[in-house]
Design a protein around this nucleic acid. Structure first.
Length: 614
RNA sequence: GGGGCCGUAGCUCAAUUGGUUAGAGCGCCGCCCUGUCACGGCGGAGGUUGCGGGUUCGAGCCCCGUCGGCCUCGCCA
């Protein structure tokens, strides 16, 4: 009689001393086998963990014989008694290490080929192989934890938003291609040859239309698609929590978002996140951190030293300033101990990293205590407290040195790293430098969660290439009421009712209050160089809806994959997906994308370009 | 789309200046072993060096192409 595996009594990882003496049925995969010729030990694994099985040839010869045939990843079911291990045989490294199961009966439910890699957490296997054998990869405890955490976070989303009166509504995947934004994934229409649907980059317009339909609190956990190159923190299809509310101002939306985040951090990590979150203006973030998603766990704030550097004879500084640029710097406390190799020589030196993103170089100085003029003289450093050495020190006179130290708060033993260029480039370089220095010098405190709202984003940005404005957030974002008049006079000065949640330097969510007036929306389209005809063609349905009593509304979207990455402390977004794709958008397991039959192409009226090889 | 690095046993990696029979650890297979938990001991098998072409007396190594992976810039409202 086979063991009734459907009457499994508990998970392997949950067997404990409270069951001592009880008969149990467990099922799982063979993790490890230790065969002593006589006694055989098996670690059996299921989604909750491992438990040690013991096979004794004297008491259970038949089970012991079967145990000898077991190999890695065989799927088995056993019946046995839970026993407390003798004191000296307790394994403190195992959660179930105080007990073991004396097996009386075992069934091999299925055998396994030798796995291509071992199912354990500390593996060193290339990603492609992991993805090809994703079903094995997902057996690893960290991957199980990741997907289970994902489930819990999503469950909390549904509970929380349901409690708050939100309604989950689905929106189409086969929809209309939207201009701007990322590249669309296209789906050809069979019934209308030559026509294409696009997969949604987000349900943005649908959720706004639902507001116009009167569902004043909407949410959805929804797949979004963007056909751009993948990265460690990016996949072509990803999941968003999408939220929209009517009759709200910025604070109302921030409150709802904070409420969820606080709850999920408490329930999953047991961490109390203080509310309300700190708010920082976009301008403040750019000035102090050079980036719109600052990691505030460490200081290293950027200081503007344009005024001081203007007085130097250093062409790199003065040249940049003459062209309308700025000079800014980061003070690294104690940074004088950094080697020349680390700063500018090594392949991965700070300078080379910055050169990699376009910087010309990395001017720097180290701050030292000033030497007295001669050995005999007293009052060392009384007039000039500090002196600079190395790098571009020679361009700073004692007076300028004093000014520089005053402007940056630099003290003896510090290093100052400069960037001189346009404001945009200086921000880009120093933001990167900040991150790199913090990581290398271990300035990032462990266990800290810094939640931050970045607010007061500009509404528009200007691109020189095509000499036109682009929406910073998206074209439906409302300008601030007091800035509406700037749309005529100085559009780049207009601020948006937009906001991002940043956690430890990761942009986790973002949103805005939307335009709910047709005239304002038309004005924005015009600024974005859309003619009324184009606007009608592309967004006619939105403009039509805006003429039928739209409520004021706004919302946000949160990256669920990034959320799970943060909660699990993962450094790869791939590990939060069940079946992710490579950087080329390829799935090694299913071998997708792949060619299709000529018949399918014919039905879609699609002919492949001659350059496409079969 | 641009640039860089990489591809050798099931896995992770070696292989001197282009030179003998391409090695190691882990895994795998066999035998032995009654308290292991990274069990241990002895023995063994396992290779079209991603693929295609070229240079050379000779190519894992050099050159060209191609496929794939990773990093990076661009892109990602």
């Amino acid at each position: 009689m086979p063991i009734a595996y459907n009457q499994r009594t508990c998970y392997c990882g949950q067997v404990g001393p409270h069951q001592a003496g009880q008969s149990v049925i467990v099922a799982g995969w063979v993790h490890n086998r230790r065969d002593h010729g006589g006694m055989v030990f098996i670690d059996l694994r299921d989604r909750e963990g491992l438990v040690q099985l013991k096979f004794n040839p004297e008491t259970d010869p038949k089970a012991h014989e079967t145990a000898g045939k077991l190999r890695s990843e065989f799927c088995v079911c056993v019946r046995g008694d839970v026993a407390l291990r003798p004191q000296s045989m307790i394994n403190p490294k195992m959660r179930t290490g105080t007990v073991e199961i004396n097996v009386h009966e075992i069934d091999i439910l299925s055998a396994s080929e030798t796995p291509r890699f071992m199912v354990e957490d500390e593996i060193n296997v290339n990603d492609e192989l992991r993805l090809e054998y994703r079903f094995l990869d997902l057996r690893r405890p960290t991957m199980q934890k990741s997907l289970i955490t994902r489930h819990r976070a999503v469950k909390i989303i549904r509970d929380y938003f349901n409690d708050q009166g939100f309604i989950e509504i689905e929106t189409p995947f086969l929809t209309k291609s939207t201009p701007e934004g990322a590249r669309d994934f296209l789906v050809p229409s069979r019934k209308q040859p030559g026509m294409f649907y696009a997969l949604p980059q987000s349900p943005q317009l649908f959720k706004q239309l639902l507001m116009m339909s009167g569902f004043d609190k909407y949410m959805q956990i929804v797949r979004c698609f963007r056909d751009e190159d993948s990265r460690k923190d990016r996949q072509p299809e990803f999941t968003q929590l999408d939220v929209e509310m009517s009759f709200v101002q910025v604070d109302d939306v921030l409150n709802v978002a904070e409420g969820y985040l606080v709850r999920v951090w408490k329930e999953i990590l047991g961490v109390d996140v203080p509310r309300p979150f700190v708010r920082m203006s976009y301008q403040n973030a750019m000035d102090d951190y050079g980036i719109d998603r600052p990691d505030t766990r460490y200081d290293l704030r950027i200081k503007d030293v344009t005024a001081v550097c203007r007085k130097t004879e250093f062409k790199i500084f003065t040249g940049a300033i003459e062209k309308g640029g700025v000079v800014r710097c980061i003070r690294v406390p104690g940074g004088a101990d950094m080697s020349q190799n680390e700063i500018e020589k090594a392949d991965n030196s700070l300078q080379n990293i910055l050169k990699g993103i376009g910087a010309g170089g990395l001017p720097y100085v180290k701050v030292d205590v000033a030497q007295p003029p001669s050995a005999g003289s007293s009052q060392p450093g009384a007039a000039v407290p500090y002196a600079l050495k190395t790098g571009v020190a020679k361009f700073f006179s004692p007076e300028l040195t004093a000014e520089l130290c005053a402007a940056t708060g630099a003290q003896a033993g510090d290093a100052l790293f400069f960037a001189a260029d346009t404001i945009d480039n200086v921000c880009k370089y120093l933001a990167r430098l900040r991150e790199e220095v913090a990581r290398r010098r271990n300035l990032i405190p462990a266990g800290l969660w810094n939640f931050l709202w970045v607010i007061d984003f500009p509404l528009l940005e200007h691109h020189a290439e095509d000499n036109r404005y682009y929406a910073v957030h998206h074209p439906f974002t409302s300008p601030m009421d007091e800035d509406v008049h700037l749309l005529e006079s100085d559009p780049l000065k207009a601020r948006a009712k937009a906001y991002d949640v940043v956690v430890n330097g990761v942009e986790l969510a973002g949103g805005s209050i939307r335009i709910h007036r047709a005239d304002v929306q038309s004005k924005i389209f015009k600024l974005l160089s859309l003619t009324p005809e184009e606007a009608e063609l592309k967004f006619g349905f939105l403009l039509k809806a805006l003429r039928h009593g739209p409520p004021p509304h706004g919302g946000f979207a949160m990256g669920v994959d990034r959320l799970v990455m943060l909660l699990c402390g993962l450094d790869s977004l791939q590990d939060t997906f069940s079946f992710p794709k490579t950087a080329e958008g390829y799935c090694p397991m299913t071998v997708a994308p792949s060619p299709v039959d000529q018949k399918q192409l014919d039905e879609l009226s699609i002919r492949l370009a001659p350059s496409v090889k079969k």
